[in-house]
């Protein structure tokens, strides 16, 4: 790890985005975003719909080519040295397909083989992951027939399979039932405790407040606030800080007067 650390500075960030930029036509989806996820932190990225969270994370992991800027995982540039960077991270994108006509076990096994994990280690890991994710009951179900929650769980399993140092999770808890969510949370907390780093995006403030030690708030493609949780939320809750930062008009006084009147 020494090689990745500049001689006189602090530890390299687990994920560092530098002036990352993406525009689709006239719409700027991500506007020169700088972000650093410190090693060993549990980082929450929050923002309203359309803030650019998914676009930013896609560029960060190498799934969407940025118009400008850099993304480094533990000091390794994702776009210049993709193979090394991609081995260091586990990714759970939101809403993307899998090789759908495989069972969960087949999917994990094939992925492990593609990642070059030795067979005996792989068999053990796959079994363990299926146990933890409680996907053993669906032994013969193909991924295409999985429920949304099951898809999240198998997705998280694929992200964990090769023992990454950084987890990048886009909306990991959406549509996951509370029991499974609790199991997933405890896995992530253990992962961070063991020295790993996590960045997750979410709409759910309470969840981010409960899990994360560091947060960033995105709005309209920009990071409007970032830092330790307590610094960002100040005296109130994260939700209040969020509403203040994003400047949403809650608009609960007017309109829809006919509803349930």
């Amino acid at each position: 790890m020494e090689a990745m650390r500049p001689r006189d500075a602090e530890p390299v960030a687990a994920l560092r985005l530098t002036a990352l930029h993406k525009a689709f036509g006239d719409t700027v989806a991500v506007d020169h975003v700088d972000l650093a996820v410190p090693q060993g932190s549990f980082f929450g990225l929050v923002g309203p719909n359309g803030a650019g969270k998914t676009t930013a994370l896609s560029m960060a992991v190498g799934l969407l080519r940025p118009d400008g800027g850099r993304s480094q995982v533990l000091g390794v540039d994702v776009w210049a040295d993709p193979d090394r960077a991609k081995a260091l991270m586990g990714v759970l994108p939101d809403g993307l397909a899998m090789p759908e006509r495989l069972t969960g076990r087949e999917l994990l096994t094939f992925l492990g083989q593609l990642r070059g994990i030795p067979d005996d280690v792989l068999t053990e890991r796959v079994q363990e992951l299926l146990d933890v994710m409680e996907l053993n009951d669906a032994e013969r179900t193909l991924v295409v027939d999985y429920s949304t929650g099951m898809r999240k769980k198998i997705g998280l399993a694929t992200a964990l399979l090769h023992g990454p140092r950084l987890l990048v999770l886009d909306e990991p808890f959406e549509a996951v039932d509370p029991v499974s969510a609790a199991a997933l949370k405890s896995i992530l907390v253990r992962f961070v405790a063991a020295g790993g780093s996590v960045i997750l995006s979410s709409h759910v403030m309470a969840l981010v407040e409960q899990l994360c030690d560091t947060v960033a708030v995105m709005a309209k493609g920009r990071v409007v606030a970032a830092g330790p949780l307590d610094a960002v939320r100040g005296d109130g809750t994260l939700e209040e800080a969020f509403v203040r930062l994003v400047g949403v008009d809650v608009g609960d006084r007017e309109g829809l007067s006919w509803l349930a009147s």
Binding site: R101, L102, T103, F110, Q113, R140
Partner: peptide, 29 residues
């Protein structure tokens, strides 16, 4: 619903070995 098999997708030999073989086995399924 089309069901998968419970059998393990162990690494194959010859054509079915290695990373290309892994993709081949996935594709055939």
């Amino acid at each position: 619903t089309i069901r998968g098999s419970r059998a393990l997708a162990a690494a194959g030999r010859g054509l079915f070995a290695g990373r290309t073989g892994t993709v081949l086995r996935k594709e055939l399924r």
